[in-house]
């Protein structure tokens, strides 16, 4: 099943062109866009008005079957319509470049957060508190946030429309993006670099909290700590992206379904077979390429390091419940 994960609309507000501007530099971006649009309407208007005027005035009629006058060139006119657009384009270029630098150079006092992308899930690690989250990025308002990002498999791209920021994530390399939110709320995060089957499901939520709410969120610590194991497993099933390949209703997807998986007999491509017990499930998450179930291709990335021991236990508990 190619199910859609999220139905909540987080970008409803905004004007005709853009979603609501929520970062410090978003309004600058929109202003420059309006400036270019104004010039475009002006020049487009001139081109179309002149065209329509000529079409009406000089259309062929029985009395008017040949051109009235043959003007083959006018250098002054050529220079005019070369120099004026050139000047305006240079204004746009410098304006855009100035804003671009602001959008690329993070302030020195930024709070750093590490972002790891893998098919098809976003992981966030907060070095100053040691917290980790998946599919949900939580930041304080009015504080510059610098994201240091990398991918573990293919290219991805991190995009928050409300903040007007975007940057590709590349394996073996760090890229950065920064923004400062000016309004608390929930905002949409997209993957915008095509990354395979579930590219369009690689979504996440940005939660911007007021300073006090953020402190409380930090104090509460890992929200997953207090959850019972099976419920945590259920949450990780979507947060960690298992859902993209493993169904829980028995349908076959990229990977085997989890329904009735526990204690069932598995046959592998090597010809061997054994019972899917706790150890097998753990092995499948940490070393997924060791044993490939017959009829499937070995495409699963390892989750060693990405899942804590408790999280592995939680997913095993969850699988046990899906009968």
């Amino acid at each position: 099943m190619d199910t859609k994960l999220q139905t909540e609309n987080l970008m409803d507000n905004g004007n005709f062109w853009f979603p609501e501007a929520v970062s410090t530099f978003a309004t600058n971006v929109d202003t420059l866009y309006s400036f270019i649009m104004f010039l475009s309407y002006l020049f487009f208007g001139i081109i179309i008005a002149a065209t329509i005027y000529f079409l009406v005035k000089y259309r062929k009629t029985p009395q008017h079957r040949k051109a009235l006058k043959h003007i083959t060139h006018n250098n002054l006119l050529e220079i005019t319509w070369t120099v004026i657009p050139l000047f305006l384009l240079m204004v746009i270029f410098f304006w855009g470049f100035k804003d671009y630098l602001n959008m690329n150079i993070a302030p020195g006092d930024s709070q750093e957060i590490r972002v790891t992308a893998k098919k098809w899930v976003w992981d966030f690690y907060y070095p100053d508190t040691g917290l980790t989250t998946s599919s949900e990025l939580t930041v304080p308002v009015n504080k510059p946030i610098k994201l240091i990002m990398s991918s573990v498999d293919v290219l991805h791209s991190f995009f928050i429309p409300n903040m007007r920021v975007k940057k590709d994530l590349i394996p073996n390399r760090y890229t950065t993006v920064w923004f400062e939110a000016i309004k608390p709320g929930k905002y949409q995060i997209f993957c915008t670099e095509y990354c395979g089957k579930d590219h369009s499901n690689m979504l996440a939520t940005l939660t911007v909290l007021s300073e006090s709410d953020y402190q409380e969120w930090v104090k509460a610590g890992d929200p997953n700590k207090s959850l019972p194991l099976d419920q945590l497993g259920q949450k990780l099933y979507t947060d960690k992206g298992c859902v993209a390949c493993h169904s829980i209703d028995g349908t076959t997807n990229i990977g085997p379904t989890w329904k009735g998986l526990y204690q069932s007999n598995r046959t592998f491509t090597s010809g061997e077979s054994h019972i899917a017990d706790d150890n097998y499930l753990r092995e499948s998450m940490v070393k997924p390429m060791e044993e490939i179930v017959e009829g499937f291709q070995g495409v699963m990335p390892t989750f060693a390091g990405s899942l804590s021991d408790r999280e592995i236990d939680a997913i095993i508990e969850y699988i046990k419940k899906i009968k």
Binding site: V29, F93, F97, Y100, M103, V165, K166
Partner: peptide, 11 residues
């Protein structure tokens, strides 16, 4: 022209 403008192309 819009897309060639650096700050706009980011979005």
């Amino acid at each position: 022209v819009v897309l060639g403008t650096l700050s706009l192309d980011i979005h």
